[in-house]
Design a binder for these strands. Sequence first.
DNA 1: CTATATGCAAAACGTTTGCATCCCT
DNA 2: AGGGATGCAAACGTTTTGCATATAG
Lengths: 166, 166
Amino acid sequence: MNVKDAVSAFNDYLQSQGLKLTRQRALITEVFFDPAKRADHPTVEELYLRVKGRDSTVGHATVYRTLKLLVDGKLATPNRIGEDLTRYEPEVPGEHHDHMVCAECGLIIEFEDAEIERLQEQVAARHGFALRDHSMNLVVAPRGDCARADCLKGAAGEARGAGAAR
Amino acid sequence: MNVKDAVSAFNDYLQSQGLKLTRQRALITEVFFDPAKRADHPTVEELYLRVKGRDSTVGHATVYRTLKLLVDGKLATPNRIGEDLTRYEPEVPGEHHDHMVCAECGLIIEFEDAEIERLQEQVAARHGFALRDHSMNLVVAPRGDCARADCLKGAAGEARGAGAAR
DNA sequence: CTATATGCAAAACGTTTGCATCCCT
DNA sequence: AGGGATGCAAACGTTTTGCATATAG
């Protein structure tokens, strides 16, 4: 999903709700879906600062409010990966992935595993429920040294969709 | 792990750190490990209120500070199951489980699945990491009506109906 | 035009911390 | 006795909200 599609999808959502695509909302969405930053999971503050860099008049509240709308419109997902801050990640409709965070350097790796998801549904079913959503975060440690920049040393990119550093 | 063992284990930890087992710390630990409440995952506020019921002089800060010590001592685990609040759960050394939360009523069910855990290790290994820890939360919905006797639907205050609205 | 959105600053929330006092060991 | 520990309230950082003004459609 490129920037233009994201803004367009957001606009569709806004219109369906009788809301408006303002200059600020478009800008925030553009910055959030900026291809150069797609791998990270910004906090509201980080996103606010990036937005501010392009338009210093945008206020804190607008970023919070817009992020909430993006979540409602399924274009963003809040994620509490670490411990404290809420991070948001750009969402590509239809795709799903979980996270792996390196305990040494904090690198966040995305992955998906169909087999695990199948088992999750089984577990829910076993308790009489239907699986509606899930979150899974693995805390991992490198085997050997952690070289920060490329913590995935030796990680021959197998498991597809593992959009780690690139 | 019963109440007495928990307090004792906490005391061991405290002594190892040159800290003291005070009346308040013992009380908070007792309340936290109260068998009648072992299934739930109290927020700091909930625990504070329960403690306050037994000794109204205990302050907010002490509960926060003690909970942090319990976490350091591996007797408690912070868990962000729903969306907002941090919930703490009594930890039994050697045991592990994940959570399933009902989107309708907020009921939290604990489960463990060896197969999923095995796959998690595989995923980590596939990326060149060793699995150190993980958290997994399933958001589920009852099939049809929630017929569970322990369905918390309508139970204000406790476990807020996670997720749902999206 | 009118409903919605904005920016600001203040409020609200959970959590932490400084400090004078208190209490374990 | 003395180094923790406590309770209180003030401080904190994040997120929300009230309000007067600005703007999209």
